[in-house]
Write a protein that binds this DNA or RNA. Structure first.
Length: 185
DNA sequence: CTTTAGAAACATG
DNA sequence: CATGTTTCTAAAG
């Protein structure tokens, strides 16, 4: 998986995105409807929603404040199928991701990509993995802003005490995701 | 319009 | 209640 990252740390923030074009669409997935979007450099957004796709779309605009947006259902259909293809026919090798966030967020998200299916980790353990053992809560914040649900497996992060913890688009969906990978790990 | 300071908000422990 | 980071708001340059 090829990953392009972009930091929002400095003033480059605006300059770097003002010419970016984003194509998006919403599609049904095994875990409910999702908004999916990509730039020229790769998949940049994947978010489940229930009823109001507006909220999801608003979030997309927030993450890429100076981009221009085009809705194109046809263009995102294939991408969605690829992402949610059964493990047997995964070609995620060639999948490209385009991530944008603060340095801290990028660290958290990238580390999360290495957590294998079926494996659970606590917010604290994740904090330790990025060498900031006392930043468990900050990690919670970063995980909660994961721009690419499912692919960046934020659903595998749970509380230290064993309880499920939160999920931005519904704890029920978090459980469904975990149950699904418990079946075919 | 841009910068700054401070408070409030968080998918925690 | 402390933690680290981010976002929001208001005020000022």
């Amino acid at each position: 998986m090829l990953i392009t990252t972009e930091t929002t740390a400095k003033q480059q923030l605006k300059i770097s995105t003002e010419l970016i074009q984003i194509t998006y669409g919403s599609h049904p997935t095994p875990f409910g409807p999702a908004l999916i979007a990509f730039t020229a450099k790769g998949l940049c957004h994947l978010d489940f929603f229930d009823d109001d796709s507006i909220r999801a779309l608003t979030q997309l605009h927030k993450n890429w404040p100076h981009a221009t947006f085009y809705q194109d259902q046809g263009a995102t259909t294939t991408l969605t199928q690829r992402v949610f293809a059964p493990p047997s026919q995964q070609d995620s090798q060639s999948l490209r991701l385009h991530l944008r966030g603060t340095d801290f967020q990028l660290k958290v998200w990238l580390r999360l990509l290495n957590i294998p299916p079926g494996h659970l980790i606590s917010y604290q353990e994740l904090a330790q993995l990025i060498d900031q053992p006392s930043a468990a809560r900050a990690v919670g914040g970063a995980v909660g802003r994961n721009p690419i649900c499912y692919l960046i497996p934020c659903h595998r992060v749970v509380r230290s005490d064993g309880s499920i913890g939160g999920y931005r688009s519904g704890v029920a969906r978090k459980k469904a995701l975990l149950a699904s990978e418990a079946n075919h790990p």
